[in-house]
Amino acid sequence: MTTPDDIEHMILRVGMGDRKAFEALYSATSAKLFGIMLRVLKDRAAAEEVLQDVYLRLWQGGAQTYSAGKASPISWLATIARNRSIDKLRQIRPSTTLDDAPELADPAKGPEALAIAASERAQIFACLDELDPDRSAAVQGAYLDGDTYADLAARFDVPLNTMRTWLRRSLMRLKDCLSR
C-alpha cells in the first residue's frame, strides 16, 4: 500500500528531476486523479488531456511548489486535479448548464484507493449529512461539477443572493463540524 509519506517523498523527488520517482508517482496516483478528472469533465478525451497536462506541469517545476508536511500530499494532488478539470470544464462549457449531477460513486465500491485516514473520509461526508440535502448537494455540485453561484442559483431556482447566503452559511457549518 502506498502511504501518504511515500507520495510526499515521490513529489519531492520529482521536484528534483528524478525520473524514476515521476514514474512511481504516476503509477501510484494517476488512477485517483484520472477518476476525479472523469468525474468533473464526464469526457474521456478531455480528462486524458488534463491528466497529461497535470503530470507534465508536475514534472516541469510544479512539484517544487509542494511544501513538505504542510498538507496531505494526496489532497494537494487531488486539488490540482480538480482545479485543472474545472478550468477545462469552463473552457469547454462556458455557459450555465442545468444537467443534474450523477450520484457520487460509493467509495466502498471503488478499487482500492490511496491510503487516507478513514476518519477524515467519514468526517466530511458526515458533516455534509448535517446540512440540508439541498445545501449539501450545492457544496458537492460546486466542487465536483464546477457550478458557480449563478449555476447553483439556476439549478436550485433561487435568487443569486439567497444562494450565496445559503452556501456561505453551509460552508461555515461545515468548517465548524470538521473542526469538532
Binding site: 515521476f22 514514474e23 504516476y26 503509477s27 494517476s30 488512477a31 485517483k32 484520472f34 477518476g35 476525479i36 472523469l38 468525474r39 486524458e48 491528466l51 497529461q52 503530470y55 507534465l56 514534472w59 516541469q60 498538507a71 496531505s72 494526496i74 489532497s75 494537494w76 487531488a78 486539488t79 486535479a81 480538480r82 457520487l104 460513486a105 460509493d106 467509495p107 465500491k109 471503488g110 478499487p111 484507493a113 487516507i116 477524515e120 473520509r121 468526517q123 466530511i124 461526508f125 458537492q140 466542487y143 465536483l144 461545515l174 468548517k175 470538521l178
Partner: peptide, 28 residues
C-alpha cells in the same frame, strides 16, 4: 482546499489508458 479535497474520496479511481504515460514521458 484540503478540507474540500476529501470530497474526492467518494470518486472511484479509474486507470488511465495504457499508452498515456508513454506520451507524457516522451514530452516530459
Amino acid at each position: 482546499q484540503d478540507r474540500l479535497a476529501a470530497l474526492t474520496e467518494a470518486v472511484a479511481p479509474v486507470a488511465p489508458p495504457r499508452g498515456l504515460f508513454k506520451r507524457i514521458r516522451r514530452e516530459a
